[in-house]
Amino acid sequence: MLAGKNILSLEMDSGQSVLDAFYRVLEMVPALKPHWLDHEGQPQVFVHVFLNGDDASTLAQGMQTPLHDGDCLDFIPPVAGG
């Protein structure tokens, strides 16, 4: 909700990856940059990206996993429970 909305539609080229989508979101919503990127422009360790419900870091190609039409990405903070 920091960006004023919590759902965005992305149009990506064929073969582009989860990481590409991550940066595309930041282009669309620059206000997120200080929260999602570290001083070197890398994704912060605490931003968890999920592709169709799976933690991207657990996928074989990680953040380089290619996207397909209709894929859903979620960006989730470090949830710790109670």
């Binding site: 200080p34 912060q44 989730i76 903070p77 710790a80 429970g81």
Partner: peptide, 24 residues
């Protein structure tokens, strides 16, 4: 530095979990 970028406990407290638990 990071609370606002992470769970935003200062503004949301633990209710932020409702949306995430619902999602999963």
């Amino acid at each position: 530095d990071f609370d606002a970028s992470q769970n935003d406990m200062r503004h949301l407290g633990t209710p932020y979990l409702v949306e995430i638990m619902n999602k999963f």
